[in-house]
């Protein structure tokens, strides 16, 4: 069971997530795409763990999940706050901090 297909899948998912972040305007969808990128990273980490025969990769993936959970909590709270004041969840509408 070679590791390369897993890594290639991981790379493809990561890229799709990145393109999603760049093209979508709904903040929640952007956020979901970020989660997709994190998950792609996790897949690579777990693949590496199997490749090297140690559990450190799995530990790293575990920490990524924890951090992702924390990030989602705060990020969604921010999106809620913005939505409450601006009645919009579009990331392009929050563009006052500029030239």
């Amino acid at each position: 069971m070679s590791e390369t297909p897993f890594l290639v899948l991981s790379a493809i998912l990561f890229t799709i997530g990145a393109v999603g972040v760049l093209t979508r305007r709904n903040a929640i969808v952007v956020f979901m795409c970020v989660e997709l990128m994190l998950n792609a990273g996790n897949l690579a980490l777990i693949t590496f763990a199997r490749t090297t025969g140690t559990l450190d990769g799995q530990i790293a993936a575990f920490f990524v999940m924890v951090v992702a959970a924390a990030e989602v909590v705060v990020g969604l709270a921010i999106i809620m706050t913005i939505f409450r004041t601006r009645r919009s969840a579009s990331v392009d509408d929050a563009s006052l901090l500029k030239y």
């Binding site: 070679s2 390369t4 991981s10 790379a11 493809i12 890229t15 199997r50 490749t51 090297t52 025969g53």
Partner: peptide
């Protein structure tokens, strides 16, 4: 990225 990771080869897969 695909090019990069396809390059990576650690030889034999140890397994867990």
């Amino acid at each position: 990225l695909v090019l990069g990771v396809a390059q990576v080869s650690v030889g034999t897969v140890v397994g867990l």
